[in-house]
Design a protein around this nucleic acid. Structure first.
Length: 576
RNA sequence: GCUGGCGUAGCUCAGUCGGUAGAGCAGCUGAUUUGUAAUCAGCCGGUCGGGGGUUCAAGUCCCUUCGCCAGCUCCA
């Protein structure tokens, strides 16, 4: 086993490289104050306080200086000193003093290489010469201690490895990841777009993206009816007063858009669907016999997001949630949660997602409701997770103030995670809206409400889907499932008949009758990631077949048209 | 929102010191009738993101605004 195969070793290497970078920065720009510089997932960073931000040219200079330091093969020396001594050593480093003052122990450790000394727990490499390959990646601002009220520091990101080859592989991997970025594929495959004049974070779904969405929505609706849901629709705006009742005006206002005036009455575009479903529930007296009520809606909401956080389809200002609200009795809670969780997993798996992170968020500060209800709800969530055999992490205190929740996060091409599914128990809204049902005892009781979104939002889910498949969607989702292409225009009639057969069988087909060479047509279809290419020449016309080429290049040979239709219909049905 | 970088044809990008904008692909037209990832030729295509300023002259410099990218912060 090489050192590089050992995670800890790599962390030590990167942490040491961060120190080398800090040394280089101090030597080049002595006025710079050092702060902290840990190893992170794919490398390291170091935060500096300097009035002039680092430029790309500065990075090159720093890299050169780092190479010098590495060449000198300075040893990393560990020393333990008292906090007083440490304060003397770092007397000009206010950030370090702040850190020292917060350390509980009497002694602190410092590491020294050459003339550079840094407060650090360690461990480190034996000497700087052990760094064999490194690269500084980018500069970005970051707040001291991650608090936006603090001063903004200059963060330099870099990465390092024990071997040049590993660094190259890493950089290559990043390049490859960029190729499956949904923003790039969305453009290349003509799936969606955004436009300055429309506004940031607002999505136009092009025909090909829309076909996928339509397919997702249809599947979603069918499955919801199968799973005992009813589907509803609600308006996009409501009077401000509704949002006062719901509490959103108090605790969600910074995410809501300003009111619009309608005949002197202020209305707000909805950031959430729940108040509407609650009003629908309250429209008529409910009996305990009717519960659970499961109402689902593909509800489009608009939320203000700070411009800097918008990101392709994954973080937008207008999106459609695959929302649902379940009103149930306390004794139905366990069952309902379990159903929702299983439904979630079924949906995600149907779309090919098997790898995600699951979190259970528990009671935060400033919660509403009773502790006993919180416990019941949290137990119900936990129980369902365990029963499903899911590995999950507990995120203590990260629940919403109105109830605990389960979040399922999917990773994007660059390993950033995005929350898609969410299952939340809510004790708050039923209270605020005075939601009731008449129990067996003839008295009125308050139901529990579960908010849930399985895919999260269609926009974000679509973004994840694009990256998951790198744009090569499984057949059932592919915008164009099969394209007939002719060798010469002598086959146009036959090709058109084949196309009609496809269309009549509900297959999304196209015909490429252009006067182009077959190689060219194949190339284009390949780049559009069309699953099946049906090549038609004289041979095929005579035998009433199509020569089938699969996306990726596999040649399936000549197949009778009828047989092909049956085959592909089965494949669509199986969602493979 | 904050820090930094960026915005040139539908797309990807070039454009020197401030001297009046260019390529490939796409598109259009024509020729070619072709067997598994690019046939050839011609043509069209731009308020250089928007607005303002400096200058004899601005894609280039300055201000402002919108948007995009990376990160921070945020994320019911």
């Amino acid at each position: 086993m090489s050192e590089a195969n050992n995670h800890n070793e790599l962390e030590i290497l990167r942490h040491s490289t961060a120190h080398i970078m800090a040394q280089a920065v101090r030597e080049l720009y002595p006025e710079t104050k050092i702060t902290i510089g840990p190893a992170i997932k794919d490398g390291f960073y170091y935060d500096f306080d300097r009035d002039t931000p680092f430029s790309v040219e500065d990075l090159e200079k720093i890299e050169k200086k780092m190479e010098d330091i590495i060449r000198k093969d300075l040893s990393f020396e560990r020393m333990e000193v008292s906090k007083d001594e440490a304060r003397k050593i770092f007397k000009d480093e206010g950030y370090k003093i702040e850190l020292i003052n917060e350390i509980q122990d009497e002694k602190v450790s410092v590491y020294k290489q050459g003339d550079f000394i840094d407060l650090c727990r360690g461990p480190h490499l034996t000497s700087t010469g052990r760094v064999k390959a490194f690269k500084l990646i980018s500069v970005a601002g970051s707040y001291w201690r991650g608090n936006e009220k603090n001063k903004m520091l200059q963060r330099i990101y870099g990465t390092s490895f024990f071997a040049k080859k590993e660094l190259e592989e890493h950089l290559h991997k990043l390049e490859e990841a960029k190729k499956r970025d949904h923003r790039r594929l969305g453009k290349e495959l003509d799936l969606f777009s955004m436009d300055d004049e429309i506004g940031a974070g607002l999505i136009n779904w092009h025909p090909k993206g829309s076909v996928i969405r339509y397919t997702i929505e249809n599947f979603w609706r069918e499955e919801h009816y199968k799973n005992g849901y009813q589907i509803v629709y609600s308006p996009h705006i409501a009077k401000v007063n509704l949002w006062h009742t719901s509490g959103h005006m108090d605790f969600y206002r910074e995410n809501m858009y300003s009111p619009m005036d309608i005949e002197g009455m202020p209305y707000i575009v909805k950031p959430m669907n729940c108040p509407f479903h609650i009003k629908m529930y309250k429209n008529k007296l409910k009996s305990y016999r009717e519960l659970p009520i499961r109402w689902a809606e593909l509800g489009t909401v608009y939320r203000y997001e700070r411009s800097g956080v918008l990101h392709g389809l994954l973080r937008v200002r207008g999106f459609t949630q695959d929302d649902a609200h379940i009103f149930c009795r306390l004794d139905q809670l366990n069952d309902e949660i379990e159903r929702v969780l299983n439904f979630t997993l079924y949906m995600l798996k149907s779309f090919g997602f098997n790898d995600f992170d699951v979190y259970l968020s528990t009671m935060p500060q400033g919660y509403v409701g009773t502790i006993s209800n919180w416990e019941k709800a949290t137990d119900a969530l936990k129980g369902a997770l365990n029963k499903a055999g899911l590995k999950f992490e507990i995120d203590p205190g990260a629940g919403v103030f109105y109830g605990p929740k389960i979040d399922v996060k999917i990773k994007d091409s660059l390993d950033r995670t995005w929350q898609c599914s969410t299952i939340q128990v809510d004790f708050n809204l039923p209270e605020r809206f005075d939601v009731k049902y008449i129990g067996e005892d003839g008295a009125s009781h308050q139901p529990i409400m579960i908010h849930r979104a399985l895919l999260g939002s269609l926009e974000r889910f679509f973004g994840c889907l694009i990256e998951h498949y790198a744009g090569a969607f499984p057949l059932w989702l592919a915008p164009v499932q099969a394209r007939v292409m002719t060798i010469t225009d002598k086959q146009n009639d036959f090709a058109s008949r084949v196309l009609n057969q496809l269309l009549n069988s509900g297959i999304r087909g196209e015909a490429d009758l252009r006067n182009e060479k077959i190689g060219f047509k194949i190339r284009e279809a390949q780049m559009e990631k069309i699953p099946y290419m049906l090549i038609v020449g004289n041979k095929e016309v005579e035998s009433k077949t199509v020569s089938v080429r699969k996306r990726g290049g596999a040649d399936m040979g000549a197949i009778g048209v009828e047989k092909f239709v049956e085959m592909i219909k089965e494949e669509i049905r199986s969602k493979q």
